[in-house]
Structures are given as structure tokens and as C-alpha cells.
Design a protein around this nucleic acid. Structure first.
Length: 271
DNA sequence: CCCGATTCCTGTAGGC
DNA sequence: TGCCTACAGGAATCGG
């Protein structure tokens, strides 16, 4: 599932191929994603050049001179640069065809992703304006997280997965970060100390940037190949390792459900 | 305001 | 082997 590192990997993978390229055609095969794909999308885009591809949280922003295409990959979406003649398969919902023989293709079996068009500043878009800070920015630090947490009764795992608090910490990296910081995911956010929040913000930054680096190593394969960045291959300490030994102390990893999300932790290392 | 539950969707894994 | 069901998950939205 695309978490922030995979979205960033995608951004880096596609931008060099579409920047300054002009849209020649747009093919929408399935309009019903998380929200309907705008009906007039083709008319909006044809004849315009991509100026840049940026990222905010897990949203990709493809900027044109007259507006921005806002994409989210949901949990099963991927974007690839393909030869524009490549036949579409079952879940290929959108192609943006460029003049140089290439196309940007969106594939998303579960259709939790979205494609939206914004003519205003995309940072003010209703889905983006209310988001918390980027985890890799300096705005995100122990003091910030500590302040936000005061009075909160939710568990710390649900707290750090709340996009209004901080973006880009999905289910996998929430478990991994709490492991690195030595914090039990069931702890009440409002009762965790400032010192532990320092540790936790560092852990989140460390886990996410390591994953981005891993995605970076597979960029070449990603663009030319099967569209699956290789960060899944990264070493996960606890996620999906139920009953397997903790890499630090050997205690079996425990799994339970928290807020409808599978949660993994080491009962000895995380208190 | 805050929080937990529900919802969208389909591929995959597990049980029989 | 094949069918059936449960489950996975990002994040908006609903209900309490």
C-alpha cells in the first residue's frame, strides 16, 4: 500500500518524464474512484504542459499553468510511465498521453484513490488545507507533538496516524516508529512525556527517510518495469511479524486490532 | 471538540 | 481443486 515513501518515490519517478511535456489526450476508463473523476478533465488538460510534480502528504500534485491535478493512490494505486500504445488492463483507469510517445497511467484495483482538478492554490483545497505538518519538516518535532497531544484520550498509535496531527504516518510506519521509540501503541497520547515525544518524532523521521532511500534504489526498475517500488523489501521490525521473535530481544511480537487497524509490537521493548 | 465505527472496493489468504 | 468467507487498508464521514 502506498505510504508516504512510496508516493515520494512515485513523484521522483514520474516527474523527469512528464515535466515540460504537453498533454495530447486524456483517457478516463473508470470515473468512479474515491470521488468521481471530473468529467471535463480531457478538455482541461489537452494542450497544456506539466510544470512540476510535487507532493503534499500522500497527495501528488501535477501542476499546470492553469491549475493542478490532485492525485491520491489510496491503498492499491500506482502510477507508471508507459509507452502510450501499451494496451490497458482491467484496473487501468486513467491515461494522460503526452506528445513524446509516453503516457502516465493510473492503475488502482480497489479504487480508494482519487483524481481531482483544482484551479486555485492546491494548498487551499479542502482536502489539503486542514492537514498537519509534513513529518520530515522541522515543524514536526517533539515539542509540537507533545503540545498537540495534551488532553487527548486516544491511543498514541491512533494519534500519530491522524492526518490533522501529522501526515504520512500510515499503519505500517506507525507500528515501526513506535517500536523504534520503545513506546507501547496502547499508551494514551495525552499522558506520554515530552522526552518520549522527542524520541518518537525522531523515530518517525528515521523510518520514513530510510524508506524513501530504499524506494530511491528501485527508481529505475519502477519507471521501466512493473510499477512496484521495492520498499516492501525493507526490514520491518514488527509489522506483519506476529509471533516472530523481536529483532532486539527475541520476545514474540504481538498483534492486536486498534481502531480497526492491525497493530504489532514487542511487549518487552515497548512499554 | 473528540473519538470510535462505518464506508468505499477487490485481491488474497485461509478454512473446509 | 475449488468454493466461500474474512480480512486488509487511507481517510472522509457519520454517530454518539
Amino acid at each position: 500500500m502506498p505510504e508516504l515513501p512510496e508516493v515520494e518515490t512515485t513523484r521522483r519517478g514520474i516527474e523527469p518524464h512528464i515535466k515540460d511535456k504537453q498533454v495530447e489526450d486524456v483517457i478516463v476508463r473508470h470515473h468512479q474512484l474515491r470521488w468521481p473523476v471530473p468529467r471535463g478533465l480531457k478538455a482541461k488538460l489537452v494542450g497544456h504542459k506539466v510544470q512540476s510534480v510535487s507532493r503534499r502528504a500522500k497527495y501528488l500534485l501535477i501542476e499546470f499553468d492553469h491549475g493542478t491535478l490532485i492525485l491520491h493512490l489510496g491503498m492499491s494505486g500506482s502510477l507508471r510511465i508507459i509507452d502510450r500504445a501499451l494496451p490497458a488492463e482491467k484496473h487501468d483507469h486513467l491515461d494522460i498521453l503526452f506528445g513524446h510517445g509516453k503516457a502516465l497511467r493510473l492503475t488502482d484495483p480497489r479504487r480508494f484513490g482519487c483524481v481531482l482538478w483544482s484551479e486555485d492554490n492546491p494548498q487551499q483545497h479542502e482536502l489539503i488545507a486542514q492537514l498537519g505538518p509534513e513529518p520530515l519538516s522541522t515543524d514536526f518535532n517533539g515539542e509540537y507533538l507533545y503540545r498537540q497531544s495534551r488532553g487527548r484520550k486516544s491511543t498514541i498509535k491512533q494519534f500519530i496516524m491522524d492526518g490533522k496531527i501529522v501526515v504520512g504516518v500510515g499503519n505500517i510506519y506507525a507500528s515501526e516508529s513506535l517500536f523504534l521509540a520503545g513506546i507501547n501503541p496502547k499508551r494514551i497520547a495525552g499522558k506520554v512525556s515530552r522526552e518520549r515525544y522527542d524520541k518518537l518524532t525522531e523515530a518517525i523521521k528515521q523510518v520514513l527517510s530510510a524508506a524513501i532511500k530504499q524506494g530511491g534504489t528501485t527508481l529505475r526498475d519502477f519507471v521501466g518495469g512493473d510499477g512496484k517500488p521495492g520498499y516492501f523489501a525493507q526490514q520491518l521490525n514488527v509489522y506483519d511479524r506476529k509471533d516472530k521473535p523481536c529483532p532486539v530481544c527475541g520476545t514474540p511480537i504481538r498483534q492486536f486490532v486498534l481502531g480497526q487497524r492491525s497493530t504489532y509490537y514487542c511487549p518487552k521493548c515497548q512499554r
